[in-house]
Amino acid sequence: MAIEIVQTNLLFGFILLGMGLYCVLSKKNLIKMVIGLEIMSKGAILAFVGFGGLSVQAYVVVAIAIEAIVAAVALSIIVNVWKHTKSLDITDMSRLRG
């Protein structure tokens, strides 16, 4: 029984991770990219949840809290990007290159 749950969860975890990766690869809007990142980490958390157990609950709660902080930091940087360029399109943001 355990094996099945594990496999389904892992499968969906991978799918979420892949979706998130596709999102950050293709989307040009910063907010959408942050959403992509969040989807990726939700995939990782889902993979965790599948294994069950008491300690996992603790892990997952902490992990979610960390995700929230990272998202907050990312968004705060994006606010600053907005202040500079009045745009959220990443195609305008390749001044640092080479």
Binding site: G20, S41, A44
Partner: peptide, 8 residues
């Protein structure tokens, strides 16, 4: 952050 997701 993407890396962290992979790590997790």
């Amino acid at each position: 952050a993407a890396g962290s997701a992979f790590a997790l």
